[in-house]
Simulated assay, not measured.
Amino acid sequence: MATTTSTSPHPSAEEGPKASNMRSLSRALEVFAELQRAERPQRLSDLARNCGMSLPTTLRILRVLQDFGMVSQTDKSYRIGPAVLPAARSFLENDPLVVAARPILQQVASQTGLTASLYTRLGFERILVARVDGEVPLRYDLPLGKRLPLTVGAAGKILLASSSDDELQQVVAAAVAGGHEEPGLTAAALRSRLPEPGAEYAYSADERATGVLSVAVAVPSRPGRRPSESISLTSPVEAANEETLRAGVPELRRAAGRLSELLEGSVY
């Protein structure tokens, strides 16, 4: 008589705890990411609502993060804790992208007189990972590690130039949820802001910050992969104009190509 082997629809005793642990870790990282995005300390109720979790679950996660110094509490609000500083220092000192980019950005800033910045894409956002100031300081303080939308600013738009409609819809949803865009934004409207697929650069004026001009190029990636980093030149309007920014594109392209060569063979 033939026998058949069936697979139980229920996870084994070993798989159950592992899956539960991974869900707990995922939720903890989601809460931690929400605190990173916040411009100010967050109340428990706001964190729970923004993360789509119950108050008890959010509170348990915050207490665990507090135990590891990743989160600090003042009165009834929570913020990022001091334990992130050693992690940030380790990243800035050891990350291949940052280490390779520093001298390249210094050269670009020196030759153009403009502020040179490097961004990396993280999900539906971009993060400033390195910057060298130009001759004229910018009007605003943009600290390293700042999460920014992909939907505005040359450095974000160049990374979306070849995106599909489905991806743009996801980007729009994330930008709206993060408060970076109005709820009425559509994927088609976002597409109209972007450079054409295959364009050498993206340009922006008065987009993320008033009175600021920027131009950016994507850092070439491995064949078959889309770029996830971009280099930009930025200036206040009183120190440059559109023609000045566009004149810096060849230097940006050389810098991006050099950075790509230095990163060849690394995880990037």
Rank of each mutant, 00 (worst) to 15 (best):
A189H: 02
V237I: 14
K76L: 05
P143G: 11
L262Y: 06
E93S: 10
K18W: 15
F68I: 04
N50F: 07
G134C: 01
L118G: 11
L138S: 01
A173P: 01
E264M: 08
L148C: 15
A177C: 03
A175P: 13
V132S: 04
S24A: 15
T234I: 13
A19V: 12
L47E: 07
R40I: 01
P96H: 12
E93C: 00
T3I: 00
E251Y: 09
T3N: 01
R43E: 04
V136Q: 00
R191K: 10
L114A: 13
V217F: 09
R89I: 11
Q170S: 14
I61S: 14
G184F: 04
L150G: 13
E243P: 08
L92S: 15
E15I: 07
R49I: 01
V237P: 03
R254K: 12
G153V: 10
T74G: 07
L65K: 05
L47R: 06
V217I: 07
A33M: 07
E264V: 08
L92E: 15
A175E: 10
P17C: 01
G145L: 12
G113I: 06
D67V: 06
Q66L: 00
L55G: 07
V237A: 15
I231K: 12
R79G: 01
V84L: 04
A240C: 12
P250N: 08
V171D: 00
G198N: 00
R222H: 13
Q42F: 03
I127D: 04
Q73I: 02
G145M: 14
A33L: 10
L144Q: 10
R60L: 09
R60S: 11
S117T: 12
A13R: 09
Q73H: 02
A101W: 09
L118N: 09
A28H: 05
M70I: 03
R63C: 02
A218V: 11
A240Y: 07
F32S: 12
S228L: 10
T112P: 08
L213V: 13
L97P: 00
L128F: 05
L25Y: 02
R225V: 06
L92N: 15
S235E: 02
R139M: 11
S26E: 15
S54I: 00
P183D: 04
A256F: 00
R193A: 13
G179P: 08
Q42S: 15
P86T: 02
R79E: 03
G248C: 02
S228M: 10
E14K: 04
A175K: 11
L59F: 11
V172S: 03
V152T: 13
R147T: 05
E182Q: 15
M22I: 05
L150S: 11
E207G: 13
A13F: 11
D75G: 02
S6N: 06
A87C: 03
L262K: 10
G179F: 07
A109N: 09
T5D: 11
R49H: 05
G123S: 05
R121I: 00
I61Y: 12
R102W: 05
P250H: 07
P197N: 05
L245V: 10
G123V: 02
T57M: 06
L97E: 06
E261W: 04
I127G: 05
L118K: 09
D46S: 14
V71A: 01
L144K: 10
L148F: 14
S163T: 06
S45H: 09
R131H: 04
I104L: 12
Y78N: 05
P9T: 14
D75L: 02
S163F: 09
M70N: 08
Y78V: 07
E242I: 05
C51R: 00
